[in-house]
Every structure is written in structure tokens, then in C-alpha cells.
Simulated assay, not measured.
Amino acid sequence: MIPMLDLKAQYASLKPEIDAAVLRVLASAQYVLGDEVEQFEREFADYCGVRHAIAVNSGTSALHLALLALGCGPGDEIITVPFTFVATVSSICYTGARPVFVDVEHSTLTMDPERLEAAITPRTKAIVPVHIYGQMANMDAIQTIAARHGLPIVEDACQAHGAEFRGSRAGSFGAAGCFSFYPGKNLGACGEGGIAVTNDDRHAKTLRMLRDWGQEQRYHHVLKGYNYRMDGIQGAILRVKLRHLEEWTEARRAHAARYTSLLGGMRHIRLPHADALRRHVYHIYAIRTGDRDSLQRALLAEGVQTGLHYPIPVHLQPAHADLGYAVGDFPVSETAAREVLSLPIYPEMTGHQVEQVVRAVEREAYVA
């Protein structure tokens, strides 16, 4: 069986480093926040090319607090896309604001700037583009529109560690950028974790207070805050893994290039978009096909695990029926949800495994 990802292989390759990092935290007894988390924050901020990084317990928490730091709340509207993991929208709802959707581009599956301006109203408080699958949205166009209307941007970069647009890293474009360290991410913790990055000193101070019960100093609660702190063990593990992230990213990009080369002659298969403006880090290698479900079943029968990211756009999820959207409102997102199929991709994957996946697809009669 070729798995979608292999976290055991990753741990085995780093076992001495990770074990030492964990034991160091246990010996220090700094189990929540602490020195390891602080050092990881500095290192991740440097990696993204920003001034501040505020570590929290999940990517969802990072998005929630970033929006609160911008003053988002009841009565506000926040624009995002329906083709994303539900956490993007949940974080908006947590603030009391209303999510407003715009469709995605057919090519990149990221926010369509041509549809963005029409969604802006006097109640719009912020824009949240999603860098889906490891590829950044068109930040040139989105920033231009946001600036014209005086709106801040919060980047949902939860799948885009190290991704770039015109040579600048994800997280460095908006008022804040938010990342997830869920174990399967390009930079994954051994548990839950997340981080918000920013160049704004005031936002950074607010974020630090909000994650720790709104405290400016111990037992001095300035804001109504949350228990969103990162564990010391996760900070230490992420420091180890961050040192390997660029090597892993290049391995992902090499596997993606091999997939693209071998799958390029196959009809009925649409490959992931890539262009010179963006550094795609391939959190997901998602092909598109009109017979997605049949292909997924056939690949599993041949020992190839695949994934669906994401089969139901958020505007059609029962949990968000109260937003009032219906089938047909966002046709590009709805079509993508029916067609996307994620092939295995992870740094430890071998070239032979990539070729095995391709041959399995070929055997299902998709060759041109």
C-alpha cells in the first residue's frame, strides 16, 4: 500500500533529534509556552520574513485571534472562499462576524480577484484569502483591491509553509498570516499547533494577550482572552522540523514535477496549476477528473491511498446552511469539489512510488 503520507517514516528519520528535544522540555518542566516556544517563534518569524510570530494551539486559533486583533466582531462581514477546509469559516464565525464568500479561480482554486470587489460592502471588515494546497492566491490583485477599500488581509496560510508569491513568503503580505502545524502539514507537530505572524507591533501584543487569557501580565487580564497557548514539547519538536523544512519542500516539489511530467499526456486529467509567480510547496498534489470517485476506488484496489480535499464546499455544508447560500452560487468551487483527487505526496516518498501511482492511474484507461 502506498499511503497518502507516512508520518512514521518522518519520525524515524528524525528520531534522535526529536527525542532529545522532547527530553529537554521534560527536564526543564516548561510544558506550556516557555523558552522552546519563544525560540521557535523567532525562528519561524525569520523563516517567513516577518517581525513577529505568536504560537498557539492550532491554525484555527491563529485565524480566530488574528481576526479579533483586527477588531472583527458582530455586525461585520469577512470575505473568504467556500473552497477551503471548514476551519477558515469557523474562525470567522467565532468572532461573531458573518462569512461572505467569493468563488475561486478555475486554474489555481484560490480566491478569484475579479469576483472580490463585488462582494465588498460597507460592513466588510477584512479579507481572508486561502493559499490552498500549498499555492498562494494572487496577492498582487487582492492587495490592490484591499488597499483601495482600506481593508486588512489575513492570509490563511495553513497549507502554505514556505510558499511564495513574487519571491516573498506566505504570511508576509497581510496584516497577519496564519499557519497550522497539524501533523500532516508540510511542517507538522506531533499533535496540534498553529501560529500567527505579523509585522505590526500592536497586533503582535494583542495576539500574545489573547492566546493567554488576555493577560498583559500574570493575573492582570486586559482583554477577554482564551487558552490558546502552544505546548513546550510542540515548540521544541517544531524547532527540529523547521530546520528540515526546505529540504522537505524541495523533495515535494521534485515529486510533483515527476507526477506532472508523467501524467501530462493523460486525457480527462487536469493537473495542478503552477506558474513563475508562485513557489508551490505541494501540501497536496490534487488532480481533477470528471470520474473522480471511480478513479479513487480503482486506485485503492491497486494499493494506492488517495484523499478528497474537499468534497463539499463550505457554503453547502449543513452546519453553515444559515448563511443562506445554495447549489449553483459558486460554480467553480462546486465543480472542483466534485473533481479533485489528492495523490500521495510526502518528502519520504520515493521516485519508484511516484511511478507506481502513475502506472495505477494509467491502468484505469485514462491515457490519451
Rank of each mutant, 00 (worst) to 15 (best):
L323S: 04
A55K: 08
L67H: 05
T108Q: 12
A204R: 10
L65T: 02
I145Y: 11
A256Q: 02
A163C: 02
D231K: 04
M209F: 10
V128C: 12
I142L: 11
L242P: 06
P3V: 05
I18W: 12
G162D: 01
R98A: 11
P3E: 05
H309A: 07
R123M: 08
A45P: 12
A27S: 11
V22G: 10
Y285H: 07
A321W: 10
H244S: 07
I145P: 05
V358I: 02
I54E: 06
Y47V: 11
A236G: 13
A189E: 10
V197S: 03
F83P: 10
L7H: 03
Y325V: 07
S180C: 01
A69L: 01
M1Q: 14
S107V: 08
Q356D: 06
A12H: 13
Y259N: 03
I345P: 05
A321Q: 03
V358H: 00
L23V: 12
G214C: 02
Q353G: 09
R243H: 14
H149F: 11
I120N: 02
I195P: 12
F44D: 05
V327K: 15
M230P: 04
L308F: 08
F181K: 01
P183D: 12
Q30A: 09
W248R: 15
K8N: 15
G134Y: 00
Y259C: 14
R42Q: 15
V81C: 00
G351R: 01
D293G: 04
T110W: 05
I79H: 07
Q39L: 08
K125T: 01
H352Y: 05
M1A: 08
A160M: 05
F179R: 05
E362K: 03
P347R: 00
I79R: 09
G49S: 09
Q296F: 04
L341F: 03
Q135I: 14
C72A: 15
S90D: 15
H320W: 12
Y366Q: 04
I142V: 12
L68M: 14
A326V: 11
E246V: 11
F85G: 15
D275H: 03
D156M: 04
A274P: 01
S107Y: 08
H161C: 06
L323M: 04
Q143V: 05
E38G: 14
R229N: 06
H64D: 15
L271T: 13
G184H: 13
R297H: 12
G75E: 02
Y182V: 14
